[in-house]
């Protein structure tokens, strides 16, 4: 594939796919986090209530699959980042940006290892024994994914698409 398109286009396409998967993951996890943090007890009236009133348990497998796909694509893009992005960032003294990207990679790994318990808690959503753990792990995972997304977005603005 790399012989058909330019190197820049090749990596830009992968970065775009990574972004699309991240957006799906962010949306699903934010719905779930809202559903566990502020569960709706009455018929959903406004847009915020309807946002919280989703059947959150049904998102668990999709979140796990999207997380793993986004993680794997991010891991693939990371090889190019290490050479084409990080070295110029350091040369231009963007140390905080570089530091936050390394922070992002660690958070991504910490989030990955949470997935088995997260999935199990959601698949047993009828069991009140797991209510608090499910709420805690979903909120932590949602915070992590928001962090990953924002750092990735800022880094892309610093030196991303077509750079």
């Amino acid at each position: 594939m790399r012989s058909l398109i330019s190197t820049n286009t090749f990596w830009t396409l992968w970065l775009f796919v990574h972004l699309i998967c991240a957006l799906g993951l962010l949306g699903a996890l934010t719905h779930q986090a809202m559903a566990v943090a502020l569960p709706v007890r009455k018929p959903a009236a406004g847009i915020v209530s309807r946002f919280r009133a989703v059947p959150a348990a049904g998102y668990a497998t999709a979140v796990c699959v999207l997380y793993v796909i986004t993680f794997l694509i991010g891991s693939f893009i990371y090889t190019q980042y290490r050479i084409a992005i990080r070295i110029p960032l350091e040369a231009q003294h963007y140390y905080k940006t570089g530091g936050f990207f390394d922070f992002k990679e660690h958070v991504a790994s910490l989030g990955l290892v949470l997935l088995p318990a997260y999935w199990y808690f959601w698949k047993n959503a009828q069991n009140p024994e797991y209510d608090n753990a499910r709420k805690g792990v979903t909120l932590v995972l949602a915070a992590m994914v928001w962090f990953l997304f924002i750092v990735g977005h800022v880094l892309n603005n610093t030196r991303g698409f077509a750079s």
């Binding site: 905080k96 570089g98 390394d102 660690h106 910490l110 949470l114 932590v140």
Partner: peptide, 22 residues
Amino acid sequence: LWLVWVFPILAIPYVVYSLMYW
């Protein structure tokens, strides 16, 4: 079960410290 979500939170300060180089 609360260890599942407490440990990743506790890991964050260490991770920030480990990036002291930056």
